[in-house]
């Protein structure tokens, strides 16, 4: 647009990005602070990271999180991609759109208690498997959204050409459609994984009693409730670093995933 930008607008932009990033950067810097407390810098140290990696509950929680995120991402990517392709190749339906959009906008506390009530009504034992089942619900919605936008920028007549040339429906999907939407599928999978790794409330309600199925966000929540500690800063830095990396890879895979 216009090359000149009023000074006030520029200032607002600088303050806005500072507002977004200063808290995160402060947290990350403090994770390397020897004293481990805010306000005073007492020297560089990796002590808090060392403490983190020698704590059994944290290692177990990290492992649980990885299991949940990998399983729910795999399921949601396959199911969600099929769903997106199905929806986009059929007539538009507002009801269907609403159903696919719902998991993204329902307050997570409502979905969490609904799922807890449902599992309890079925007398289901809760654990990692019930967290996985629950995470797939919102992961499907995100995969569908990303793959659908990718499909809208795809020339559907190519599919007809493929069919006219005698390709079976499956061949058309595998050789024509899938390569075209693959970036969207990959981005959707990466975002699902990120969401699942970070999700707290639904996991908290559907994990059941006992420590066996504690995930990393549940562990972080317990630690924050306990107070501000340098270990949280170290853990937060690692978790944020992983999320940022995954989101940036997703953006590289599907350039328009956030900006279309």
């Amino acid at each position: 647009m216009s090359p000149r930008m009023p000074a006030a607008l520029k200032l607002h932009m600088v303050l806005f990005y500072a507002f977004l990033y200063v808290p995160i950067l402060v947290l990350m810097a403090l994770s390397f602070n020897r004293a481990g407390l805010p306000t005073v810098w007492t020297g560089f140290s990796l002590e808090w990271y060392g403490k983190l990696f020698s704590a059994d509950p944290i290692i177990r929680a990290a492992r649980n999180t990885l299991v949940v995120a990998l399983a729910s991402t795999a399921l949601a990517t396959v199911i969600g991609t099929a769903l997106a392709v199905g929806v986009e190749t059929r007539r538009q339906s507002a009801a269907l759109d609403a159903l696919l959009f719902a998991p993204m906008i329902i307050p997570d506390i409502v979905l969490a208690i609904a799922l807890l009530s449902f599992y309890t009504a079925l007398n289901m034992t809760l654990g990692l498997h019930s967290i996985i089942l629950s995470h797939v619900v919102f992961n499907i919605a995100f995969v569908v959204a990303v793959v659908r936008t990718r499909m809208r920028h795809f020339d559907h007549s190519i599919l007809e050409a493929s069919a006219d040339l005698g390709a079976s429906e499956f061949t058309t999907f595998r050789r024509v459609l899938l390569p075209a939407i693959a970036p969207g599928v990959i981005a959707g999978a990466l975002l699902s994984f990120t969401l699942s790794v970070d999700e707290f409330i639904i996991a908290y309600f559907t994990a059941g009693a006992g420590q066996g199925s504690t995930t990393l966000p549940m562990q972080i929540y317990a630690m924050i409730r306990f107070g501000v500690t340098p270990e949280i800063n170290a853990m937060a830095t690692i978790v944020m670093g992983v999320s940022f990396a995954l989101v940036l890879i997703a953006q590289r895979a599907d350039k328009g995933v956030f900006t279309r």
């Binding site: 990005y17 977004l20 990033y21 200063v22 808290p23 995160i24 402060v26 947290l27 403090l30 407390l37 805010p38 306000t39 975002l191 990120t194 969401l195 790794v197 970070d198 707290f200 966000p217 972080i220 929540y221 924050i224 501000v228 949280i232 800063n233 937060a236 978790v239 944020m240 999320s243 940022f244 989101v247 940036l248 953006q251 956030f258 900006t259």
Partner: peptide, 27 residues
């Protein structure tokens, strides 16, 4: 992308960052 990057990170941690910023000995 810089705008949405924090949005995709852990909600608990983003909230905790403000405990660090706002507490009595905070920044």
């Amino acid at each position: 992308i810089l705008v949405i990057l924090p949005f995709w990170s852990n909600y608990l941690i983003r909230t905790y960052a403000w405990i660090v910023m706002l507490n009595r000995e905070g920044l």
